[in-house]
């Protein structure tokens, strides 16, 4: 009997399907909340990138004739206590908030994923030590730890990002470790071992690509948390330093004038609210879209 005689090759052409990412995108598009989140996130990113072009005023230029003016045609969102345009500061502040969100989550992913992969894949005492450290860090409330670290490093936006990133790391270690534990007992990982892959290659080429979806979901949710954390640190004076704008520091200065100039507090609060809501909606949508159990 020849090999060709047992060929059902034709079936494959009929069973042509889209790849996993295309399928996730199709399912994401169906979710209104997620698409709203995605649109707002893209909008915020564009605003942050194009800040120098679209900002109507210099965000740090003071004007003593324009102190605490309510919204008007000249200043759409009003002015603050030293006459700076609130819209310009919101637009420039998007840079601080978004970069704080992205950079700190980048730090958390950069440290957390390799360590989680190591703990989950190697197991044994490495796992035991790493997991106990993670437990210890998770026992301290997120913001308290971030504040303590930022205070220790000294007040600046960069240090705030580092503090938030390090604080967000344990969650990623734990998530990556758990996903790795589940993936490493799959048959395809054993098959990878059977063809002669070294361990590092199994971890990077066979385990990691298969645990990306939950990490992506966690990352988008963590960005929302990081934006709040940056706002909180800036509010406390540990983040972006004056006069450079940040939504959190704008809130901080607005609190003294909440009765006389409520717009000073309203707009940065609104911006934080929308950014965080959008990242959360996007994360939830991604979670559903990437979950293979959903149809």
């Amino acid at each position: 009997m020849t090999v060709a005689a047992v060929t059902p090759a034709a079936a494959a052409t009929d069973a042509r399907e889209e790849n996993p990412w295309a399928r996730a995108w199709r399912r994401l598009k169906r979710r209104k909340g997620a698409m709203f989140g995605l649109v707002v996130v893209v909008l915020f990113v564009l605003v942050a990138i194009l800040a120098p072009l679209i900002s109507p005023y210099d965000p740090v230029a003071t004007s003593f004739t324009q102190v605490r003016k309510p919204p008007s045609w000249a200043h759409w969102l009003g002015t603050d206590e030293v006459g700076r345009d609130v819209l310009a500061r919101i637009i420039w502040g998007a840079r601080a908030s978004l970069s704080a969100g992205l950079v700190s989550v980048g730090i958390a992913l950069g440290i957390g994923v390799p360590l989680g992969l190591l703990a989950g894949y190697a197991g044994g005492w490495i796992d035991a030590v790493l997991s106990r450290i993670v437990d210890a860090m998770l026992a301290i409330p997120f913001l308290i730890l971030a504040i303590a670290l930022a205070a220790f490093l000294g007040p600046s936006l960069t240090n705030a990002m580092i503090a938030i990133g390090v604080t967000a790391t344990p969650v990623f270690i734990r998530l990556t470790r758990g996903q790795t534990l589940a993936a490493k007992v799959e048959d395809y990982v054993e098959a990878a071992r059977a063809v002669g892959n070294p361990h590092w290659r199994i971890a990077l080429r066979h385990v990691l690509p298969n645990i990306v979806p939950p990490l992506l979901v966690q990352a988008s949710l963590a960005i929302a948390g990081a934006i709040i954390a940056e706002a909180a640190l800036s509010f406390l004076g540990l983040g972006q330093q004056p006069p450079a704008p940040s939504w959190g520091s704008m809130l901080n200065s607005a609190q003294r004038f909440i009765a006389q100039a409520p717009w000073m507090a309203f707009w940065p609060g609104f911006a934080i609210f929308f950014a965080v809501l959008s990242f959360n909606l996007l994360g939830d949508g991604l979670r559903d879209a990437l979950d293979p159990r959903h149809k």
Binding site: P20, E186, D187, Y188, E190, A191, A194, R205, H206
Partner: peptide
């Protein structure tokens, strides 16, 4: 080696 379940033994992302 050839495994039992061909749905589990092939890396879905490769």
């Amino acid at each position: 080696v050839i495994f039992q379940d061909p749905y589990a033994s092939l890396n879905p992302r490769m």
